[in-house]
Design a protein around this nucleic acid. Structure first.
Lengths: 120, 120
DNA sequence: GAAATAGTCAACCAAATAGTTAAATGTTTT
DNA sequence: AAAACATTTAACTATTTGGTTGACTATTTC
């Protein structure tokens, strides 16, 4: 009933666009954390931290398990994989392995000969 | 109020958090495009598209070359590589290869007591 | 030189964000 | 039962965002 999964890249990238939430993810990489633990490194209210956690949850980046009064949060890597894959499409643009079309553009851009400039 | 790291990641992920801008990047993957060309697929004003282009530019995701009255934009892959790398840190979480620490945490997290109805 | 073209800029608006404090909910402890 | 604890919700504020329209700057084209 809670499994509503399509890749909401909007929500995922939006969630990642905030240093507070990225730091929370880092902490979650070390294992499960409570909301209070996630909030601890920051000089914000717990209510504010709670909102960040919810943003991460909405993006599918964390799963929450309520045990008693404590909410344990765990990293949910799926959306990160999706985002990683999305970025992977552009990998050829930074690895230098360009296909024909890109090579054409690159050539046009690099019409400056790497020779020593004594020819003008 | 977070005195935290990574000035570019904020802008980059924020830029990627919008479907319009992601589509623009896709188009730029096909080669240089003018602002008008980038705006064309969308039912928005040119001014709005101009803002999106500027957001991408601020994030370092595109470079602009002004020739006459026309602005030619081309993809700048560096920040995408940075974001890709940032996400790569979490790769082990979705490839299933968990190291000892993570395995420990995973186990602890699955210590959910199987309740038998004696709970209050 | 006038008109069309390419794009930005400024002012404005509605909705979303990120934060606050205060109150509420539920759980554990004493 | 009462107090302490963990967290959410509500109400509010300031800022940012994504969009609009209209005016403005340059550049081509006629």
């Amino acid at each position: 009933m809670v499994e509503l999964n399509s890749p909401p890249l909007d929500a995922v990238f939006h969630a990642l666009g905030d240093a507070t939430r990225r730091r929370m993810l880092r902490d979650l990489a070390g294992g499960a954390r409570t909301v209070g633990q996630l909030a601890e490194p920051f000089a914000i209210s717990l209510a504010a931290a709670s909102k960040h956690v919810k943003a991460l949850e909405n993006a599918g980046l964390l799963r929450r398990e309520v045990r008693g009064r404590t909410h344990y949060c765990r990293l949910e890597p799926g959306p990160l994989a999706t985002a990683h894959q999305w970025l992977g499409f552009y990998e050829r643009f930074w690895t230098g392995r360009l296909d024909e079309l890109e090579r054409l553009l690159r050539e046009e851009a690099e019409k400056t000969p790497p020779r020593t400039g004594d020819d003008r």
